[in-house]
Amino acid sequence: MSVRNQPARFESDTDEALELNFDIQGHPVRRPWWKVWSKRNNRVPWVSIFVVLFVLVLPALLADVITTHDPLRGVLADRLTPPFWMEGGTTTYPLGTDKQGRDILTRLIYGARISLTVSTITILIGAVVGSTLGLLAGYFGGWVDRFVSWLIDTFLSLPHVLLALVIVAAIGPSFVTIVAIIAVTIWASFARQVRGETLSVRETEYVARAHVAGTTSWRILLRHVLPNVANTLIVLATLQVGVVILEESSLSFIGAGIPRPNPSWGVMVADGRDQILISWWISFFPGLCILLVVLSLNLLGDWLRDFLDPKMRQRGRS
């Protein structure tokens, strides 16, 4: 490789987007396709959006319309039918049935509804409670900050799987219980993030000027600080959907979450656990759904973070 073909590079910069496309003499730099592709980090992650839409959101919204089977009651005669491409499988049950003869695909679709509902509610609660406390702590400081920070630390060091087990042993598994448990565990991450952001926003010139101009604290918080932490909130909320789905399915898997016979993805994996040798499809597909959705949400969150960061956005366009 000749020296001319080496792209110029700024040592101090960590982003490859700043690699120049022309060398010193003005000749275009040729790069192999894999390098070109890898540089398009900031492209819209269509695949992720597609997966989240078609595995999580649409099934959740349209579950009653697109399914023909009952998610809770199966046909015992058809139990343990394999997926359609295997021997003995039929297209009536595209992904097979479980040991009670329930259609896996139907249950997956209704499971998406459970995942989406749980994550929406818990994130709304967590974001509202967490960001309120975070804003107050970061802005007012003093004992408010000390108390809220202590609360955050406490809730982050709670052994929440254990707590879920205790609560469920005490009052039994239900939808409300699981939502409460997860909301209690996720508000702290919102609070911590928002508090940190608020601390830095508070030191900015425009907040100081608003203060001098006689703006009330509440108005500063709502009109000047909140909009500036909104990006962080959006990114965090996206990433937390994945966290909540993982958490809900884990708890449901160990019997401390969504009670049977509801088709939570975690419950479905647990249902097929004993049959993994012969009827692997019962556990495999729900787990795959979790993996795909959470993976896509993580990619989406990372992309959003870069996209909403003004510095990164300019770089992406150059």
């Binding site: 040798l277 556990s283 729900p286 959470v294 993580n298």
Partner: peptide, 22 residues
């Protein structure tokens, strides 16, 4: 890194038992 952050542990465990152990 992406896989590790997204995979449900219980499912990975069952899949590993299925393949590696059984």
């Amino acid at each position: 890194a992406l896989f590790g952050q997204s995979v449900p542990e219980f499912w990975l465990a069952i899949m590993l038992i299925w393949f590696v152990a059984v």
